[in-house]
């Protein structure tokens, strides 16, 4: 039992590290978008496109990192489009997001048919647990550079939003459109750029799925990670550093079901698999308050 406990804990930590990275990238992406005053539900679409294109480019060029770059670029095309078109009067950003999920999924599945079979070069990993010789521990702490990159990005965004000029401009666009206009900024342009930056990240998140973990392109690859990003950002109260914590929590909760069964508890695995959603719901219920309005960007209609 005692050994089981440690094994489960280790599996959850390992799972959190492995599963969290796409969540981290997508939620940071959504965070940038929402900070500028827009909501983009279409991250799921750019993520799946990113996964497919990343895998394809890695296959044809032989370089997984080029795949990551290509995934980011294709993702940002989606964001650019979303940002541009939602700047027009009368275009609903949530509806457009859902439409882009469909378009992204369709295109990715269509062009990805021939990529299901071949094996592309994947990203390497290394273990953080140099101090241990226990294989389970070294395995659990195997990480990929994208994970590190994600953490750095979270820190950079945290300070960036607070102190940099660019961060302030984005926040002004998100908090008060009129103030932004009065200061002479093109609010639409800011939002479009933020949106493109955001989906650049979700494209990379998708490529992580196809090029590292689980590490192959197929049509079941993304199971709503992109949609959940919107929930994650609320969960994280629009704070990049907390996006990281939220992603780890989400990853860990996702690993709970398999880890428990691996140790021999298999009752109610559907409910265990739903823990991330139940957890988020509880946190949203407890943390929402009608009076509190200072956290969410004010221009966000949410």
């Amino acid at each position: 039992m005692d050994q089981n406990f440690w094994l489960i804990l280790l599996a959850i930590i390992g799972g959190a590290i492995r599963v969290s990275t796409p969540f981290l990238f997508v939620s940071l992406g959504e965070c940038i978008t929402e900070k500028s005053g827009r909501i983009n539900l279409g991250h799921e679409g750019s993520m799946i496109m990113g996964a497919m294109v990343g895998y394809g480019v890695s296959l044809f060029t032989g370089s997984a990192w080029l795949g990551i770059l290509a995934a980011g670029c294709i993702g940002s095309l989606f964001g650019l489009f979303h940002g541009w078109i939602c700047g027009k009067k009368g275009v609903n950003d949530i509806a457009m997001g859902i439409a882009l999920i469909m378009l992204g999924t369709g295109l990715a599945f269509f062009f990805g048919k021939s990529l299901i079979k071949p094996t592309a070069p994947r990203l390497d990993d290394f273990s953080l647990a140099w101090w241990s010789s226990v294989p389970q521990i070294t395995q659990a702490f195997r990480i990929n550079w994208l994970f590190i990159l994600g953490i750095i990005l979270a820190v950079v965004l945290h300070y960036g939003f607070k102190y940099s000029r660019w961060g302030m401009i984005v926040r002004v666009a998100g908090e008060n459109e009129e103030a932004g206009l009065a200061l002479g900024y093109n609010v639409n342009k800011i939002r479009t750029i933020s949106s493109a930056l955001g989906t650049f990240l979700s494209g990379i998140g998708g490529a992580y799925l196809s090029l590292y973990y689980p590490g192959s392109w197929n049509e079941g690859l993304s199971s709503g990670q992109g949609l959940m990003a919107v929930a994650l950002v609320i969960f994280a109260r629009w704070k990049p550093m907390q996006c990281f914590v939220a992603s780890l929590l989400f990853g860990g909760a996702g690993a709970l079901g398999p880890a428990l069964q691996g140790a021999g508890f298999s009752y109610g695995y559907y409910l265990f698999n739903a823990t991330p959603y139940i957890l988020t719901l509880i946190i949203i219920i407890t943390s929402s308050s009608k009076k509190e309005s200072g956290v969410a960007p004010a221009e966000l209609e949410i």
């Binding site: 275009v91 378009l103 369709g106």
Partner: peptide, 17 residues
């Protein structure tokens, strides 16, 4: 057909603008 649906939605929703 998923591509077609995606194109239809994106165009109709975007056309509003």
């Amino acid at each position: 057909m998923v591509v077609l649906q995606g194109i239809i939605f994106v165009t109709i929703i975007g056309w509003e603008g």
